[in-house]
């Protein structure tokens, strides 16, 4: 469980989030929604201990994140960052093996290699093992990064815009995979997303970021016509079709 108490975040003079309180429930998928620059990624970095809070604290399993070493944090939290190229041409296997870093002293051992391999197999990309991460498709690369997070064996995985730069098929594949590992491995997932439709597809809870403040609740109760308008300034309708719900923007282009 992640507990955020009275937290303020910011860079130099800009305050990004002010005195927020939030509880992220265990083994659930929590989605961060909000405009660009609303503080989603900043909060994520703070949860990961990479940014020091101005005030307040972040508790992971009742331990203050700022008092843990990088290694201790990495045993609790894994991160899948936004899709990017790497400077060096590591293979998928080498990349996933690096997820074991927090568990490794000097050199990876056989158990670590096995775990890396398992992670690749679990999400069905065993065939990519020897491929260079920079040379496979964006969708495949994102799967490798998720495999790396799985190999890290943490209770929490943070995913920063995991569907960006991907085509529709791969977006759904990634979301489904997140849902799958959430269920199978009982991992708490925190995801920042741009598309509320994707939140509706896979989220249990939603945190809405709006001008330094947040609101939180169950996905369907949070994604409503009014809230979409309040947060994004876009008129939209949320339509329920069977079990699924969809956000349909009702936007007219004006010239």
């Amino acid at each position: 469980m992640i507990k955020i108490e009275n937290l303020s975040l910011g860079y130099s003079k800009n305050t990004i989030l002010e005195k927020i309180n939030l509880t992220i429930e265990k083994e659930k998928i929590t989605i961060f929604l909000g405009q660009n620059g609303s503080g989603k990624t900043t909060l994520m970095s703070a949860i990961n201990g990479l940014i020091r809070p101005r005030e307040g604290k972040i508790l992971i399993d009742n331990q203050n994140i700022t008092q843990l070493s990088r290694k201790e944090v990495a045993k609790k939290i894994a991160t899948v960052s936004q899709l990017h190229q790497f400077g060096f041409d590591y293979t998928a296997f080498e990349m996933v093996l690096m997820g074991r870093s927090a568990h490794i002293g000097y050199m990876p051992e056989k158990a670590d290699r096995d775990k890396a391999e398992e992670a690749l197999e679990l999400i069905g990309i065993g065939h990519l093992k020897e491929k260079q991460v920079n040379k496979i498709s964006g969708g495949e690369r994102q799967l490798v990064m998720i495999a790396r997070a799985i190999a890290q064996e943490t209770g929490i995985i943070l995913l920063d815009e995991p569907t960006s730069y991907l085509d529709l098929k791969n977006q759904l594949k990634v979301l489904q995979l997140i849902k799958f590992i959430n269920k199978k491995k009982k991992v708490t997932c925190v995801i920042t997303l741009h598309d509320p439709n994707q939140a509706l597809l896979c989220g249990d809870h939603v945190v809405m970021f709006d001008q330094g403040k947040i609101q939180t609740g169950e996905t369907r109760t949070m994604i409503t016509d009014e809230k979409i308008f309040a947060v994004y300034g876009v008129k939209a309708q949320v339509i329920d079709v069977g079990e699924n719900s969809f956000v349909v923007p009702n936007h007219k282009f004006e010239f």
Binding site: N48, G49, L50, S69, R70, K71, E72, V73, A74, K75, I77, A78, T79, S81, F86, G87, F88, Y90, E94, M98, G99, S101, A102, I104, Y106, M107, P108, Q152
Partner: peptide, 23 residues
């Protein structure tokens, strides 16, 4: 020689290295 594996982690960049548990 002893820490050479950590070079891989560092070569991913500060942010990645930090998330992977290497200061």
């Amino acid at each position: 020689y002893f820490f050479r594996w950590k070079l891989n982690i560092l070569s991913l960049g500060e942010k990645d290295a930090g998330s992977l548990g290497v200061n």
